[in-house]
Design a protein around this nucleic acid. Sequence first.
DNA 1: ACATTGCTGAAGAGAATATTACAAAAGTTC
DNA 2: GAACTTTTGTAATATTCTCTTCAGCAATGT
Lengths: 304, 304
Amino acid sequence: MNVRDMLLHGAISLTPSEERIVQVLLTDYPAAGLGTATSLAKRAGVSDPTVVRLAMKLGFEGFPALQRRLLADVEARLHSPLLMMEAKRPDMGTDSEQGAAIAYMHSVASNLNKALTSTPLASYQRAARLVMDTKGKVVLLGGRYSRFIAGMLAAYLLQFRPDIMHIDALSAQKTDVLVDLGKRDLLIVFDYRRYQLDVVAFAQLAAARRVRILLFTDPWLSPISEFSELTLTCPIEVNSPYDTMASSVAQIEAVIAQILASMEKPTRERIEELEEIRLQASASLDNAHLLEDEKPALASMTSK
Amino acid sequence: MNVRDMLLHGAISLTPSEERIVQVLLTDYPAAGLGTATSLAKRAGVSDPTVVRLAMKLGFEGFPALQRRLLADVEARLHSPLLMMEAKRPDMGTDSEQGAAIAYMHSVASNLNKALTSTPLASYQRAARLVMDTKGKVVLLGGRYSRFIAGMLAAYLLQFRPDIMHIDALSAQKTDVLVDLGKRDLLIVFDYRRYQLDVVAFAQLAAARRVRILLFTDPWLSPISEFSELTLTCPIEVNSPYDTMASSVAQIEAVIAQILASMEKPTRERIEELEEIRLQASASLDNAHLLEDEKPALASMTSK
DNA sequence: ACATTGCTGAAGAGAATATTACAAAAGTTC
DNA sequence: GAACTTTTGTAATATTCTCTTCAGCAATGT
């Protein structure tokens, strides 16, 4: 079993600091682990003994042992047939001209795959628990674009628990919200690169008030990560001047899925039923269609 | 210049022992050089000082310096998209119990792949043209969840053309907007299943006023498709009581990419520059971090 | 045959790194 | 809110690694 799988599916419970290390390691796997233990520690913002402890927790004799295993992985991967193909990759002409949209979709797909391999299950579990165990309010906040993601998550969460509050546009007055927040509350903040000053400032103020913080950001990490309780990262770079948010959306949906899974059966069933009913209600709305088309699965585009 | 090229095309004359080292290094590049100097020496059947001398001969300050350079190579090679795909491999029966989030992500990934193959390029091109050729206003509207996607698209479009208007919550008063709309205008509407009555109604009224309609919906088609000018579909079903919106997000981003691609160069460059500048501005925000590590590409977070 | 030059490895000094021990801080539980 | 457990970082220690010095060795030229 290679180290990546150990980190992703490992049955070991990780402490917050250890989780940060794992995150760094997975984001830049395995290179991040091939330097010294101290360099890895610094990158993860923890101390070197913590790195060593993690190595031992994983069953290695010490950090060098883990490193040797990583090296074996590198070797294996660099000799894989895929890499040979990679060497002579033509780079596709799809891009430049006409097929921009298709090229873009491909690029998003590979981005999503990266997301898949760089966030361990434990992070989702923690996020789910963090949200559901919070006794006080849950406040959501996002940046210029990411505020829409915050909104989505808020819309979902509303169905699971009370006291959800989405701060859409961050005006000066909105800072007043902070007055009512304390250590029993949770701030979920989305801050992807070109980290917004006002968002960071808000989070900082919240942190000062001991509000717990769940941060969604990119692998470069928003400054907020320094005082967040849990940070979930997600790759965002695609072949476009803009970053993609598709993976981020998938990520919050995954958190929702995790919450759903960790609920007691009765609760979950109630919600599923609720959703079922809504679906049927809407279906009856346009029965007409359903009667005409037996297999709508591939009907895609019509026009006039 | 990477180390391999230095070894291959380097203009340095090598002693026999050094040549053996180079050979080993090239045979198993770069893994052979990532351990200790002594281990490499042993593999080449020479002594460690010889390895050190070689490193210096190549212009490095010492063996660790050479090693750092090798690491950079690894990173570059391992981060190619192709290898990411290979690394993912689902395996595992993660599903049912604990791994809900991971299972969900996989499911989204396959959903996205489906999206990739089910919308022809032509649709994106038409959508792009429709948006950019509209002389009048562009109004965006979505349902309970999809209104966030509408918001995102609106946020992007605002940068490309004037007269963008996002109707967030659909109140009775908002219908008044219709008064000002006519056949020179465009309504972009998102309506995924459990098609919302009010959204459908609004679209219907718009259609009656000859407003052109661009519809984003699922393969089962919202009733709006009957009077829309162009319909883009996108699979949404995943293993969860809810539907995913990740692919929909990817889709609108793809439309943006297409718009960007079909712009005249000057316009596009202006926008790309704008984005560049924003990015740099935010980068300088945490320069402090980047200075510490030699390889900032992934250097990400330090603290305390 | 001898001297010169350059290559190489052994050994050890010095530096960097990993690890342990301990104490402070944070979180948890009653 | 106090006692407990857990987690984390600091500082000291132990280990490992790099690199320098030097002496032996081989090749080449005189």
